[in-house]
Design a protein around this nucleic acid. Structure first.
Lengths: 342, 342
DNA sequence: TATATTTGCGCAAACGATTGTTCTAAAATG
DNA sequence: CATTTTAGAACAATCGTTTGCGCAAATATA
């Protein structure tokens, strides 16, 4: 850190007390009847010395860090980094800084980091949890630190969250495939225990069931990696006879793996096999054919979660007023050319 | 913030001074001859009260925040968010937290944020500058705050940096196009004033020149957006007669725009026109055809910049020992199917 | 037994701000 | 002229730690 100037330096230089300096610098001159002359003197001296307030000291004194924690399972995933981008902007607008941590989908890391953030006395936490267990987050919440889950959440806990209505998105997408005449529809899933995945699988299964296709439903895969998509598809294409006519990828990383696999097998899309994926991404429309996808309302999710966070921070005094809002926002299906009408 | 327990609470509960508590908690029992009995008592009480140190107070006292700033021009760009991901991991390993800010390619924002970070007494700054002006960074550096530029840098300033050897990458890529028989090669650039762009353009121009093709060289465009790529390509394809046989995109966002444009015009790649782009990305190999690209050594760049940052932090006492290391790491061309051999 | 060491720990001053209370002149009032 | 009011600013405690120095009791040494 820096041996920078302090209000004490200003006070010495201007021959006034630190009290006066502080009050002037915080724009409280009027309330405390500080003469214009003194005010100018202080302001001028501060400029001259290139004074900058020590935020650490202010935090300690005011018991407020103006720091928000942001926990992300995987920053290199565009879905998450987009959220980080929006959060960064919105919080800066409101005068907060963001401590961002990439937890690499590891719950243990996340738990450690939550402790560290607590030591730093963050004023609030936005988290896309990596694990299946909300305990560390609930503990923080109970210590009166506002916490909002984004994208991933827990039904077992009383934590506020904002996420995509994944069930609806998956249900409707599956319905769409069925309406195109598909029956053998396979679903390649991501991390099984995270809520978005659970809901998507449920939506898929229910839609199949409701169409009387329960005997055809098949869920496979176990994480959001490209490799997962690749390997699962290889396996699927093995048994030529029972090949699915459509694959529903539960993330666009999975889709990439599926594409690699179908390409290697020489399959044409959508003629040989149809494809749909969760998560829209810019490049999907440049693939040949362009891929139909379920687009999540990322901007709204990010903004909404911040709104909820601030609502809680505003009623910090009486935590009893906290009402863990749990919000699901509808996704949009973007129809392109990757589904064949049978 | 939280009315959590302090060492004073422990001191009261255990009937020892805060001095002793602090020493025990910092593992200095031996050095200060604190009896095992007292040590255990303190440790036990701390546990019982669920004590957590107040990092704000520690920072103030020790004049060290354990906070690193990370300034990014655009978090939604995978190139940058990948760097953020690596930086987050590496700094966590070393016990630092990262304040990340997305500056949205806006220099004014960046300048403001640098001030804020300085107020927070960050121990170091990693920055991918948004603007053409290094003054605010140099000022920080002169205040003895370690600063390292990543990817983008300034030749006019004495700041350390780590970046891709963009000139080399562009030169060799252009050479490759030429070796495939191309002559009318157009370069669509990004933000003109940032160093990577400048170097890439230079590499392209020199390669054209060295091949005696200077009359064919043509640089257009003005930012890294998809729209830029789209519009510039539209213009290029206007004059049918003088159409280039190859386009060199200076980022993969630009490439996406180019693709959209060529697709709309019904051009086949690489038969009608060849394409090469800077920045490799996962999806490039799934495009049809897969796109040849210049891959930047992102991991090495991130790790190297952190290494340099810590080297400076380690010799904080005598800033004179600081030696602004300026490092360029070579990129790799990944040959795929988007260039036609004429 | 007197003195020198060692053991075990606490006092109090920082770090850089904020703020309730108090104080002293000057101005206003009667 | 004596007294009250007001303007203008300073005192000192506080936020939660760390740390140089000091000090009493216990033990070792002569």
């Amino acid at each position: 850190m820096n041996k920078s100037k302090t209000i004490k330096d200003i006070s010495r230089e201007a021959n006034v007390s630190t009290t006066t300096v502080s009050r002037v610098l915080n724009g409280m001159s009027r309330e405390y009847r500080i003469s214009e002359k003194t005010e100018h003197l202080v302001l001028h001296t501060a400029q001259k010395l290139k004074y900058r307030p020590n935020h650490t000291a202010v935090s300690l004194r005011l018991q407020k860090s103006n720091l928000i924690g942001l926990l992300i399972p995987d920053l290199s995933n565009p879905f998450f980094s987009n959220i980080a981008s929006i959060v960064s902007l919105e919080l800066r607008k409101r005068g907060f800084s963001v401590i961002v941590t990439d937890c690499y989908e590891d719950e243990k890391t996340e738990i450690e980091v939550v402790d560290l953030l607590q030591d730093r006395r963050i004023d609030g936490l936005l988290v896309m949890p990596s694990g299946a267990n909300p305990e560390h987050l609930v503990a923080l919440y109970k210590m009166h630190v506002p916490v909002v889950c984004i994208d991933r959440y827990f039904t077992s806990a009383e934590l506020p969250y904002v996420a995509t209505h994944n069930y609806k998105g998956a249900y409707e997408t599956t319905q769409y495939l069925i309406s195109c005449g598909h029956e053998k529809i396979v679903c390649i899933q991501g991390v099984p225990h995270v809520m978005p995945n659970i809901q998507r699988v449920k939506g898929y299964l229910d839609a199949m069931m409701d169409a009387g296709l329960q005997n055809y439903s098949f869920v496979t895969g176990n994480n959001f990696s490209q490799e997962n998509g690749y390997l699962e598809t290889k396996l699927l294409l093995q048994k030529e006879a029972e090949r699915p006519t459509a694959i529903f990828c539960l993330s666009n990383t999975i889709l990439l793996g599926v594409l690699k696999s179908t390409r290697e097998e020489g399959l044409k899309i959508p003629n040989d096999i149809s494809l749909v994926t969760f998560d829209d991404a810019e490049y999907l429309k440049f693939l040949k054919p362009a891929i139909t996808s379920v687009s999540q309302p990322v901007l709204e999710i990010a903004k909404m979660s911040i709104k909820i966070l601030f609502k809680m921070m505003d009623q910090k005094e009486n935590k009893e007023a906290w009402d863990p809002e749990q919000i699901l926002l509808s996704p949009t299906i973007i129809f392109r050319k990757s589904v064949r009408n049978i």
